[in-house]
Design a protein around this nucleic acid. Structure first.
Ligand SMILES: NC(=O)c1ccc[n+]([C@@H]2O[C@H](COP(=O)([O-])OP(=O)(O)OC[C@H]3O[C@@H](n4cnc5c(N)ncnc54)[C@H](O)[C@@H]3O)[C@@H](O)[C@H]2O)c1
Ligand SMILES: NC(=O)c1ccc[n+]([C@@H]2O[C@H](COP(=O)([O-])OP(=O)(O)OC[C@H]3O[C@@H](n4cnc5c(N)ncnc54)[C@H](O)[C@@H]3O)[C@@H](O)[C@H]2O)c1
Lengths: 207, 207
DNA sequence: TGGAGCTTGTGAAATCATTCACAAACTTAT
DNA sequence: ATAAGTTTGTGAATGATTTCACAAGCTCCA
């Protein structure tokens, strides 16, 4: 299959969210025009995005909401559930561990680790913080799919490499600054300071 | 001035971070090639990005670290400090309110609001949670530049409009789902579930 | 059944972003 | 002073993404 652009993946994820809403409301069909309006794009864009994976619509009518939902879920790999571990039970790690939004979208947070003995054992929702010394042992038996990195910058590169060596192929990274994904690992970085800077730029350079 | 692409702004923000590191180490000049290596891009890209705003380098030598830092800070609007308020003192709002990384980059979190009377008054770092009923009054006197939205999806659109009406022109949004920026307001959305979905896609469609 | 009215799927065109490639301008060494 | 070695700034070329535009296929209604 041809390479799919990052921007396309982001939009597919958006469409999926809209379809879930629409489905909940009981509507059974949706047009590319309606999805475009919701997503702030054009109907041609929506159709092009979907056409990369097949042809799911009916001319004159639009797309069946349930069929498109199923197709998109399959395309995005969301037919199954994913096992997520969080590394770093600090302020942001704790917030993420207790966030219900993830499991609603198919991601189960199954473990939280910290290196601080004072934190180990602490309850976070249903989970208890584990000692990161046991990370490799657990990764073997518990088959984590995705690791969330929520630790201080110092030590983060080392930790990313431990994650990779433990056989985990995806990292969601909250650590700012230079962090390079180990080979073969898919990494997405959320950098909130950078988002604020983009707003600063927009406020400064608006007309 | 011509329109600047979002990808360019993101890279400028990256370069700025690298330059701060480099400056701290005491190095005085840097080449486009070095910045490119740090940022995972090409030297031509770095030069093109900078050339959109002027010509700051010396041929044969590279860029003066301190001069480029100053120029980039000005370009990004970071010569001044920005006043940020957080709306929603829940799990994610509380983590953000206590995050030191923002003030290091020029963003001062000066107020946190919640609608839950049980939360109002609670201490978060140096701040105390305020009743969101006073938001408009405070916005007038305290001149917030940026509002961070960290409340449940229900009610978020209304709140975004209150923010806009209070004269705040930028929103950093953590609320997932459909939220449209009021006219004239710059909004950036951080959607963590969407990032996880991108990882799910990458894991599913890798070769 | 047929015609009006939608909406898809998709090449082609347009726009936008990145990379190439090189003259010009500087530094350093001799 | 000059030559050798760097590195910038930028048009031109390439590559990627988005938009246009329309034939083809479907629905709905009379
Ligand atoms: N708090 C926020 O809102 C926020 C926002 C954006 C980014 N971040 C980034 O997220 C990271 C964590 O921030 P925070 O505010 O939660 O910090 P924090 O200090 O509250 O928490 C960090 C936790 O990580 C633990 N830790 C350190 N090294 C570890 C290791 N090798 N393995 C396991 N645990 C380890 C510490 O014991 C601590 O509990 C930082 O890199 C920060 O820049 C935080
Ligand atoms: N917790 C996370 O890690 C996380 C991650 C990504 C996105 N989010 C999103 O961030 C938002 C907040 O999540 P949370 O986990 O912090 O939820 P939360 O329930 O812990 O906190 C929400 C807070 O907002 C307050 N609130 C509600 N309406 C308000 C209003 N109009 N004005 C001021 N305060 C109001 C509530 O009283 C509550 O204290 C949600 O939209 C969630 O989807 C959270």
């Amino acid at each position: 299959m041809k390479r799919i652009a990052e921007s396309t993946v982001r939009r597919l994820s958006l469409y999926l969210g809209f379809l879930e809403d629409i489905n909940r409301r009981g509507t059974t069909t949706v047009s590319s025009e309606e999805l475009a309006k919701l997503g702030g794009t054009t109907s041609a864009q929506v159709r092009k995005d979907l056409s990369l994976f097949g042809s799911f619509g009916k001319r004159g009518l639009g797309y069946s909401v349930t069929e498109l939902l199923e197709r998109l879920r399959r395309i995005m790999g969301l037919e199954r559930r994913w096992r997520v571990c969080i590394i770093g039970a600090g302020k942001i790690g704790a917030a993420l561990a207790q966030y219900e939004g993830f499991s609603q979208r198919g991601f189960d947070v199954v473990a939280v680790y910290d290196s601080n003995p004072a934190r180990v054992g602490e309850a976070l929702g249903d989970l208890h913080v584990r000692d990161v010394a046991f990370f490799e042992r657990d990764a073997e038996s518990e088959k984590f799919d995705i690791a969330v990195l929520a630790i201080p910058a110092r030590g983060a590169q080392k930790m990313a490499e431990r994650v990779a060596r433990a056989g985990i192929a995806a990292i969601l990274n909250f650590v700012p600054g230079q962090l390079t994904a180990p080979p073969k690992v898919a990494m997405r970085t959320v950098n909130m300071a950078m988002e604020l800077e983009a707003l600063s730029f927009a406020l400064t350079n608006r007309d």
